[in-house]
Design a protein around this nucleic acid. Sequence first.
DNA 1: AAGGTTGATGAAACTAGTTTCATATGTCAA
DNA 2: TTGACATATGAAACTAGTTTCATCAACCTT
Lengths: 357, 357
Amino acid sequence: MSTLSLEIGKWVQIQVTQKDPTPKKRANLRDVAKAAGVSVATVSRVLNEPGLVKKDTLDRVQKAITELRFVPSAAARAINSGRTRFVGALVPTLDNAIFARFLAALERKLSENDLSLVVATTESDLEVEAKKAKGLVDIGAEGLIVTGAAHTAEFHDLLDRTMIPTIITSYFDDASALPTIGYDNKAAAQLALRHLIELGHRQIAVVHGPVHNNDRTFARLSGLREIDWEGQLTTVETEISLRGGTEAAARILSYPTKPDAILCLSDVVALGVLFGLQSKGISVPKELSLMGLDDLPSSACSVPSLTTVHLPVSRMGERAAVALERWISIQEKPKAERLEVRLIERGSTIPKVGHSR
Amino acid sequence: MSTLSLEIGKWVQIQVTQKDPTPKKRANLRDVAKAAGVSVATVSRVLNEPGLVKKDTLDRVQKAITELRFVPSAAARAINSGRTRFVGALVPTLDNAIFARFLAALERKLSENDLSLVVATTESDLEVEAKKAKGLVDIGAEGLIVTGAAHTAEFHDLLDRTMIPTIITSYFDDASALPTIGYDNKAAAQLALRHLIELGHRQIAVVHGPVHNNDRTFARLSGLREIDWEGQLTTVETEISLRGGTEAAARILSYPTKPDAILCLSDVVALGVLFGLQSKGISVPKELSLMGLDDLPSSACSVPSLTTVHLPVSRMGERAAVALERWISIQEKPKAERLEVRLIERGSTIPKVGHSR
DNA sequence: AAGGTTGATGAAACTAGTTTCATATGTCAA
DNA sequence: TTGACATATGAAACTAGTTTCATCAACCTT
């Protein structure tokens, strides 16, 4: 107890000593120049090209910098260079690991190029997206990364006016005016469905997230509808989350006939469905096959492990970072990039009983 | 195919027409003033206090703004106001949902206060953290949010020099010089262990992430060691990920005697352990009890659902956002905030056979 | 010793805004 | 009709850096 009061006492003291020197405002270049007895140009050189400054002068200036606790103003730098060294990314949510993984890769690669990442979440609301995009531009973002191709008119207007380099991700489209770096959502969904069809499944329930304003989900669903086969699809819309998945599972189990297989258009939902089925005592894949689409790390670990379609989101993050960096620094507008998706066969899908593959 | 070429043709055309107007550089205040036949001061007023400008002049200036596609420079604004309107957050990783959730809440709340969030990941490396913190200051962050209380000397030196408002999260400590907003890691771990002890478990394996440079893990572990009881703890260090959990499970099962319970110091790891046990045919909680610590959304959905200690990371994000905003805007240095943790009893823990609670 | 080159430095212009202060109208009351 | 006040606007100073151009000294060459 005595130690505790001592600690608190110490802390208060720190508070006080910190308050004392605070009033004198931050030193600027002129202050340093004056203190060192040189011109502002020389201080600027010390900061940017120390090689041009005589050793003696350099020392004097650096001493002044240290003493005055000088920290150059980012804004003043930016006003001259026209560079703020950060870009913005707009993603629907951070709660889905797929976006978190994408952002992790994006940030890592941007950071290699000395760019920082401002993250903004849109909650899949295009109005919010437009507002936040405006905010990012207002604070000086040099480029934008957005999710999907559908955006509001104000958003496009903003890009038009500012000509800010902007890359669309999670979506591939050759013909888009804005460069896209992503995968073919339609093909990814078809790859998944074809796998289930090949295994002999004919009654397939498709669990997907909200279609409203979500071009990725829409593309995936329309991909499924385009496939010509002798089976039947039932679609179930739910929230993209584990809970959404367990709810969808419950709904599917309430149908008069149990499907042969369930195809979830995201892995989180598939995991949720798996849990939902397990809690009702339904065995996957014995009683029905289950597939996801995303390929999260958890999908490889679940029991059974989840068959899915791998979306290369980490690579997408890296490619987007590189492309945006080049666009910003050397005005090279990127070409659209299609990243290949691939089927990952794991334990949650097996041939339908009686079906020889 | 003909449609495709048409589309490509169209895209090329867009490219060309975009290149044409590009050369003329971005218009600035002076350009707008000249075009509207007013002074720069008037244009500035139109931007910031339109009420002071005569309707007629206002219209003329706004027309010029539109025609010249004028977008004010964020840097020039910042140089005058001294405000960049963004803060930086340093987290170990985005790959663990616990940080993603924290950041999501943080971003949401900051955004309500017109602050943007720059995210930087440190990979739990304090050197990287210091370097990225420097980067955040360099680009003009007005405040910082960091994870944990352990940092390098350079990091502290940076804070000292710049006096940048900085809040420590995921960690509570009254006596820290920097304000902390977080939970008591020691108490959280103890809460978990006491629950297992109460259920009668006496051989407990503790699975935790790397201790090196991680004060949260360290605090949790030392909390466990401080408890005086008549049982035995075995600790297993692993990577904080699902895979890390499955590996730890395998390791634990290779021991000569199976523990009564496994306590994982993060939920991701607990989920991994659960999968690892399931794949070896071990039934949780029948054969052994399993506990996590974090409380992720997935923990409520797994089968069995995971008993855990809830860490209020979303609230932590909100509180940190509010506190940092106040510190920045009205120089009110926040007080340390302890957020309560609580035990969430779910399906993965049951009393040891023969133990009456 | 004169001329050329290099190195180190400073004055001033420049980036793109905001803000202060002064001035020119216009309105109203005395 | 004149002074008082409000409104609208502009000139210039100001924010905090970078950059250009000029200057001067020192060294090297012939």
